[in-house]
Design a protein around this nucleic acid. Sequence first.
DNA 1: CGCGCGCTTGACTAACTTCAAAGATGGTGG
DNA 2: CCACCATCTTTGAAGTTAGTCAAGCGCGCG
Lengths: 228, 228
Amino acid sequence: MPAWLRALPSGTELAALATLATLPDGAEVHAEGAPARHWHLVVAGAVRLSRLTSDGRRCVAEFLLPGDIFGIEDGVVHAVSAEAACASLLARIPRRPAEALAEADPALASALRDLTLARFAHGQDRLLRLACLTATERVASFLVEMAERSGAGDEIRLPMGRGDIGDHLGLRPETVCRTMAQLCRGGAFAMPAPNRILVRDRAALEALALRDRRPSAPDRDWDRRWAA
Amino acid sequence: MPAWLRALPSGTELAALATLATLPDGAEVHAEGAPARHWHLVVAGAVRLSRLTSDGRRCVAEFLLPGDIFGIEDGVVHAVSAEAACASLLARIPRRPAEALAEADPALASALRDLTLARFAHGQDRLLRLACLTATERVASFLVEMAERSGAGDEIRLPMGRGDIGDHLGLRPETVCRTMAQLCRGGAFAMPAPNRILVRDRAALEALALRDRRPSAPDRDWDRRWAA
DNA sequence: CGCGCGCTTGACTAACTTCAAAGATGGTGG
DNA sequence: CCACCATCTTTGAAGTTAGTCAAGCGCGCG
């Protein structure tokens, strides 16, 4: 059984269904609106999920990194298009047998539900980022997110281009460049190559990437407002 | 059975669980991070779901209008806070019995799943709006959305304040004001009161509110890239 | 009737975009 | 193996958009 499916319950059975493919940079995995006949799993590289406006502006909803599954839809078609953000290796799992497997295995079904839940919460974070944060804060929060997801200590790899990052953060590629150069000059990190970041001052980066506050006080007055 | 639950399967049984409450403008329904013990349904008025950054900036993720259900969580706590955007009437449905009902009634379970799906798709639309659109386009697309949701012909009611709309669109209240005044002057609509819009030129409004393109061409080359 | 709050408008400022051009980088073919 | 070319990144300068600050208006509530 391949390493990249070990994390999932029923990984062995899923692996038996999967086929592999190498995609060149920019290759399309599926278009927006295309029939959703397969799940996909990133084995190596990176995939971007995006949508376009009618006049060609692009919004990258999400980046998928090795270990991430995408293309699991409740509907009949894919809601977003998916392309390789760099040369990548993907596993394709046919939808029907995979769904049958999930129905038979409650643990797998539960894992997939958790995955959807996490993706939804992640979507809320991106909404907050786009609605509230400045360019510097968006870039910093993106880098913190990438650092957490790649989990490689103080090194962050950026498998996608500046344009992709810009479309993800609602900024121009030039603004992404300038902002990163500025953070770099400020000592937050070093940048030996455009796609390699060495974090020097994680605290400074996290301070810029203002996370939301999570008030946890129980709402004591709440019940008084309701009739029995 | 109240009219506002007739649309749902098992509405009668749900209605038996519900209690009603009148909330004044600004009242909190539940806080972010509070235990998710109830579902809620908007009977009249409007509710906003929002999150805060650590320094107090706010992002309104969603507005709920009469007939909308919210507070259905997979997790143990609410992911966002909910407040009345104006004086409102809500129905509160305790979570456990409601979930038991959903388990017993596949039609209800399916309806709730569709609701979650629709909400997710809606989230993608908001992402595109924040990442790609100008202030004018954001306001126009918000008005088109409200027109579709309230479904009252050419009249749109805006039960929320300019600040709420701004926090929803990633704009300042002043910018919302100015943009609406400008659209009004341009003849797109009339505004007899700040919270009443009479659409005059729906085509112009929809043209500004650039929806995404939905390519539907099947991906014929796709299978050639995969090994058997 | 007066007060307060939210809406509206104006003038100015800051932030981001746009346009333009100069380095890097990596892949291809000679 | 190296040189060339296309592409992406980076930087600079000017332009636009939306934000900030401030004041006036209007409505609803007390």
